[in-house]
Design a protein around this nucleic acid. Structure first.
Length: 639
RNA sequence: GCCGACGUAGCUCAGGGGUAGAGCAACUGAUUCGUAAUCAGUAGGUCCGCGGUUCAAUUCCGCGCGUCGGCACCA
């Protein structure tokens, strides 16, 4: 006797084992048709899994949000079957579901090209039409290895060899000819997948994510529950591409890049205004939070980097210069410089915490393939700071930092913050005891600040664990922006100390921290998040005074001067063009406020304000408009 | 760095073995106009670079550089 409890609490009893498919059919033919899989006691399982004991069962259909992952995983398998049918001799490796879609990695001497995708897609649809049954089988480990070796699937054989002994090897048979190693679960047949999928790109990827291994060809696709969702997703991607900071950077005349300075930014006047506005803003926030600002040399003798450990670990990524007898390195980071400032004179526990900030211009010779617009560059400015404190102060300093970061991110439109906690990497400096202490201190402090985080195992800096504050760009790529790293190693290596209450020397802890990460990257993220329509305080050009006729030219100049005298960034547009033309042009340039003046305004000393995206205008006296705009443009954190 | 695609005017792109074309932008002139494109005219190119094949290469081939999409890396 098997008792199946359904989500509504009702219980169905069967006198022999049943499958989810049986239960669905029992409930109704509509559900039987719609059923994709089941959740057994909350876990996603195959529809055809025999249920031999009492369970809680939910039938999963396309309406279930969890069904998407299942569909995507099946899409990957259908992709693999299609590829092997079209290109015999191609080896399959792995093919998981990912956010918005799926991929499958193939090994083949001849790589696929973009032109192959439509053919493969058509074949996938054919396989869906065939509605091949998908059945789970459990194989003996050695049999499975032998089988995959015999058909030339060496990667699959390698995968199975890596599984723990005695682990059951589950194989999914798709139709009568094709099968694949897979943990499952899967749909009951290929027809259930539907056709709301699309192959999107071809790319190289290393076997098992290791650059020492062979390069495989990865085919990416997106898959959805229905055509409407698919179309929406594709439109959304298209829209997102219009917000790409590289595109807006050019359209809005913010910056450019060119090959003679690969990975370094030429900031144009508007972009530099944005940059300075952001920098002045964060500077005030730092001053308010008790930081002192310094500036340290760009070129320093390599002995300093040998001492810190950076030479050993990052030499390849450093730009070097020779001078007389010395080897100098262009600084890739600011920490050692800050320790030099800290080490001037004797520090007392009364001096701590000492928060040393710098807008430090750093250079790193990033691999060419890593460069990406403003997001990943070779020359960048960190909003860097190092907090020298006692071990007892780690918790309160961490909390203060997180509070500050939250305020700044909120000011810039980021309220949901994703945080990763990265612990000790394989290659690291410092003893295990030191790492235990550093990890515990950072984790406790983070929890005390009430921050939700996910673990990023082994991804910490070589000298300490780190918190990463991750922001997402328009296309869905994640970038680390803010960071906080607890470091018990560098103070030791660079011999920082302070005199404690007990009169003895102690090591301070160093907290490395940044809120933006790099000015460049953060501006890139800001451009994409605001789609170039920055808040008034931040936008480079806040208002354009547009004339309707020549008669208003003098008055327009006076209006602009008044606005500028009140701290606003304003230009005039006195060109002999129709007002429609001017409105269109400045709207496309994303200027938030247009101040329109014609004969009427000149006579009454008024202005017509038009907001970006707004349909109508507001007629105000010049004084009132100035007052209002000045207030609206106030930088957050100022009074 | 690795795999793949791409590289033609400021931008978006077309073309093609016989030294290049459109739209928008730019420039000049006319128009003085009330809230998302006024009209007319002009100018603009080592077709990424270097080699090779050819009577002839921007076009075909090779190499290099760069960009883009991923992977790897990211102090």
């Amino acid at each position: 006797m098997v008792a199946i409890t359904l989500p509504d609490g009702s219980v169905r009893r069967y006198d022999k084992p049943v499958t989810g498919a049986d239960v669905a059919a029992d409930i109704g033919p509509g559900l039987a048709k719609a059923a994709l899989a089941v959740k057994v006691n909350g876990d996603m399982k195959d529809l055809l899994l025999p249920l031999t004991e009492d369970v809680k069962l939910a039938i999963v259909t396309k309406k279930d949000p969890d069904a998407l992952e299942l569909l995507r995983h099946d899409a990957a398998h259908v992709l693999a079957e299609a590829v092997q049918e079209l290109f015999p001799g191609t080896q399959v490796t792995i093919g998981p579901a990912i956010e918005n879609g799926f991929y499958y990695d193939f090994a083949r001497n001849e790589p696929f090209t973009l032109d192959d995708l439509p053919k493969i897609e058509a074949k996938m649809k054919e396989i869906v039409d065939r509605d091949e049954p998908i059945r789970r089988e459990v194989w003996d480990r050695n049999d499975a290895i032998a089988h995959f070796k015999s058909i030339g699937e060496l990667y699959k054989a390698e995968l199975i060899s890596g599984f723990p002994e005695h682990e059951p090897i589950s194989i999914y048979r798709q139709g009568d000819k094709w099968l694949d190693l897979c943990r499952g679960p899967h749909l009951a047949s290929t027809g259930k997948l539907g056709k709301a999928f699309k192959l999107t790109k071809v790319a190289g990827a290393y076997w098992r994510g290791d650059s020492n291994n062979a390069m495989l060809t990865r085919i990416y696709g997106t898959a959805w529950a229905d055509e409407k969702q698919l179309a929406e997703y594709l439109t959304q991607i298209e829209e997102a591409e219009k917000r790409d900071h590289r595109r807006l950077g050019r359209e809005m005349d913010l910056f450019h890049l060119q090959e003679e300075a690969q990975g370094a930014v030429f900031w144009h006047p508007k972009g530099w205004t944005l940059y300075r506005t952001l920098q002045n803003y964060i500077r005030r926030r730092l001053e308010g939070a008790g930081y002192v600002e310094v500036n340290t040399p760009m070129l320093m003798d390599k002995v300093l980097w040998e001492k810190s450990g950076h030479w050993e670990k990052f030499r390849e990524g450093m730009f070097i210069s020779e001078s007389e007898e010395r080897t100098l390195a262009v600084k890739p980071m600011n920490c050692p410089g800050h320790v030099q400032i800290y080490n001037q004179g004797i520090k007392s526990y009364r001096d701590l915490p000492l928060r040393i900030a710098e807008f430090g211009c750093c250079h790193r010779n990033e691999p060419s393939g890593a460069l990406h617009g403003l997001m990943r560059v070779r020359a960048f400015v960190q909003d860097d700071a190092h907090i020298f404190c006692t071990e007892d102060q780690v918790k309160s300093e961490t909390k203060a930092f997180i509070d500050l970061l939250r305020v700044v991110y909120a000011d810039l439109g980021f309220t949901e913050i994703r945080v990763k906690f990265s612990d000790r990497p394989v290659k690291r400096a410092g003893s295990d005891e030191t790492w235990d202490k550093a990890e515990a201190a950072l984790r406790d402090a983070t929890d005390a600040a009430g921050l939700e985080w996910t673990l990023n195992p082994g991804e910490g800096a070589f000298y300490g664990p780190k918190l990463e504050f991750v922001l997402r760009d328009a296309i869905g790529r994640d970038w680390q922006c803010g960071t906080l790293q607890a470091d018990f190693v560098l103070p030791e290596r660079l011999e920082a100390n302070y005199i404690g209450e007990d009169g003895a020397k102690h090591r301070p802890v160093m907290l490395h921290r940044a809120i933006f990460g790099s000015m460049e990257r953060f501006i890139g993220i800001l451009v994409e998040n605001y789609a170039g329509k920055f808040p008034l305080w931040l936008t480079p050009l806040q208002a354009v005074v547009c004339t309707i006729t020549e008669e208003a030219n003098d008055y327009a100049a006076e209006v602009a001067a008044t606005l500028r005298a009140n701290g606003l960034r304003v230009e005039t547009d006195l060109r002999n063009e129709k007002i429609n033309y001017k409105v269109r042009e400045h709207s496309l340039a994303k200027v938030p406020v247009l101040v329109v003046v014609g004969k009427k305004e000149a006579e009454t000393r008024g202005v017509a304000l038009r907001r970006l995206g707004g349909a109508n205008q507001e007629i105000l006296a010049l004084d009132e408009a100035t007052d209002r705009l000045a207030k609206e443009a106030a930088v957050p954190g100022t009074f």
